[in-house]
Amino acid sequence: MEGVVLGFATIAAVIAVGALVAHLGVVDLAAQGVLARVSFFVATPALLVTTVSKADIHEVLSRSLVATAVGVAVPATIYLVAARRWRRSAGERVIGALSSSYVNAGNLGLPIAAYVLGDAALVAPTLLLQLLVLQPLALAVLDADGVGRRPRVGELLTGVFTNPLTLGTLVGLTLSLTGWQLPEVVAAPIGLIGAMAVPGVLIAYGISLRLGPGFGGDVPTGELTLTSVLKLVVQPVVAWAVAHYAFGIDGHALLAVVVCSSLPTAQNVFVHATRYDRATTLARDTILVTTIGAVPAVALAVLLLG
C-alpha cells in the first residue's frame, strides 16, 4: 500500500505545483498549451525511446497481454457506441475512448508495479500494448480527423508512422529487439530531454485545472460519468474475468493484471486532447475523477487478490 500512496501523492504534488504557479500569475493558460506541445513533440518521444528500449518485449507475448487487451477493448467499444448520442466527431470519440481505457502505465504504473507488485516488469504488457498498438492507431485517427473529413485508410497508415510519439516508440522497439545501445553522447541528452516529459505534462494539467473551464465545463454529466465508470469499474472487472476464467490466471499474476487495469486515465490523453483540440475538458476531468477513484480501486484489488 505504501507504493500506491507514494505514486499518487507524487503525481498530486506536481499537479499542485502547476495549479499554484497558475494561481500566482507566474504563467497563463497559454503556457499549458506550450508545455503540452513540447511534451508531445519533444520530451515524450525521447522518453519513449529510453523506456521501450529497456523493456523486455517477451513480457508482452503472454496470456496477461490478451486479458489486458480485452480489458481495453470492451470499455473503449462501449464508449464509441454510446458517444453517438452526444454527436461527437471522430477525434472527440477517440479521446473519449482513450479516456475510458488508456491507463497511466508510465509515471504511475511503473512505480506502483515496483512497490505494490514487487516487479516493475509486470506493467510491461499494458505499457507496450498502449505504446505499440492503441496510441499509434488513435493518433492516426486524430491526425486524419484534423483535415475535417472521414479519415482514409492511407491517411491512417501514414499517421501511424509519422507521429512523433509513434516514431519514438519504434526507435525504442528497434533498440530493444536488436540489443543495440545508443552512444552515450546521444543517449545522455535523449534521457535528459525525456526526463521533462512527465513533470511537464503534470504541470500543464495543473495549469488547466486552475485556469481552464470549471469542472465539467460543457461536457454532459452522463458522458463524464460513463468514461469514469468504464475506466474504474468495467476495465478492471473485464480484465479480471478474462484472465481468471478464460486463461486460468490466478495468484500474483492475476493481481498484476487487475492492478494495472485499475490505474487511472493517463495524462497523455490530456496531451493528445490539447494537441488536437478535441474533447479537452472530457479528458481533463476524467483524469481527475479516475486518479482520485483509482486509490480505493487499487487498494481493493490488493485487498481481494493480494
Score class of each variant (00 low, 15 high):
residue 69 A to S: 11
residue 69 A to I: 12
residue 70 V to G: 03
residue 70 V to R: 05
residue 71 G to T: 03
residue 73 A to I: 09
residue 73 A to F: 08
residue 73 A to C: 05
residue 73 A to Q: 03
residue 74 V to W: 00
residue 74 V to D: 02
residue 75 P to Y: 05
residue 76 A to S: 11
residue 76 A to C: 09
residue 77 T to H: 00
residue 81 V to C: 06
residue 81 V to H: 07
residue 82 A to T: 09
residue 82 A to H: 10
residue 82 A to Y: 07
residue 84 R to Q: 15
residue 85 R to Q: 12
residue 87 R to K: 14
residue 88 R to A: 15
residue 89 S to E: 08
residue 89 S to V: 13
residue 90 A to S: 14
residue 91 G to V: 08
residue 91 G to H: 04
residue 93 R to S: 14
residue 93 R to Q: 13
residue 94 V to D: 04
residue 94 V to H: 08
residue 96 G to T: 09
residue 96 G to R: 04
residue 97 A to F: 06
residue 97 A to M: 11
residue 98 L to R: 02
residue 98 L to K: 08
residue 102 Y to D: 06
residue 103 V to P: 01
residue 103 V to A: 15
residue 104 N to I: 02
residue 105 A to C: 13
residue 106 G to P: 01
residue 109 G to T: 07
residue 109 G to I: 05
residue 111 P to H: 03
residue 112 I to P: 02
residue 112 I to V: 15
residue 113 A to L: 07
residue 113 A to E: 01
residue 117 L to N: 00
residue 117 L to C: 02
residue 120 A to Q: 12
residue 121 A to M: 04
residue 123 V to A: 02
residue 124 A to I: 09
residue 124 A to T: 14
residue 125 P to N: 03
residue 125 P to H: 03
residue 126 T to Q: 02
residue 127 L to M: 11
residue 128 L to W: 00
residue 128 L to P: 00
residue 129 L to A: 03
residue 134 L to V: 15
residue 134 L to R: 00
residue 138 A to Y: 07
residue 139 L to K: 01
residue 142 L to S: 02
residue 142 L to H: 03
residue 144 A to F: 08
residue 144 A to R: 12
residue 144 A to C: 05
residue 145 D to S: 14
residue 147 V to L: 13
residue 149 R to I: 10
residue 150 R to M: 11
residue 151 P to F: 12
residue 152 R to L: 12
residue 152 R to I: 06
residue 153 V to F: 14
residue 154 G to K: 11
residue 154 G to V: 07
residue 155 E to W: 11
residue 156 L to Q: 13
residue 158 T to C: 12
residue 158 T to R: 15
residue 158 T to E: 14
residue 159 G to W: 10
residue 161 F to S: 14
residue 162 T to Y: 11
residue 165 L to T: 03
residue 166 T to Y: 07
residue 169 T to V: 15
residue 169 T to C: 08
residue 169 T to L: 07
residue 169 T to A: 15
residue 170 L to A: 13
residue 171 V to Q: 02
residue 172 G to N: 07
residue 173 L to V: 14
residue 175 L to K: 09
residue 176 S to L: 11
residue 176 S to V: 14
residue 177 L to I: 15
residue 177 L to C: 07
residue 177 L to S: 12
residue 178 T to G: 13
residue 179 G to P: 10
residue 179 G to E: 06
residue 180 W to D: 12
residue 182 L to C: 08
residue 184 E to Y: 11
residue 185 V to T: 12
residue 185 V to M: 12
residue 187 A to F: 06
residue 188 A to L: 14
residue 188 A to M: 10
residue 189 P to W: 06
residue 189 P to K: 05
residue 190 I to A: 06
residue 192 L to Y: 02
residue 192 L to A: 14
residue 194 G to E: 10
residue 194 G to I: 03
residue 196 M to P: 01
residue 197 A to M: 05
residue 197 A to R: 01
residue 198 V to G: 01
residue 198 V to W: 04
residue 198 V to I: 15
residue 199 P to W: 02
residue 200 G to H: 04
residue 201 V to Y: 00
residue 202 L to I: 07
residue 203 I to D: 00
residue 205 Y to N: 11
residue 206 G to T: 09
residue 206 G to C: 09
residue 206 G to M: 05
residue 207 I to C: 04
residue 207 I to R: 05
residue 208 S to G: 14
residue 208 S to W: 01
residue 209 L to Y: 01
residue 211 L to A: 12
residue 211 L to S: 08
residue 212 G to D: 09
residue 212 G to H: 05
residue 213 P to S: 09
residue 214 G to L: 12
residue 214 G to S: 15
residue 214 G to E: 15
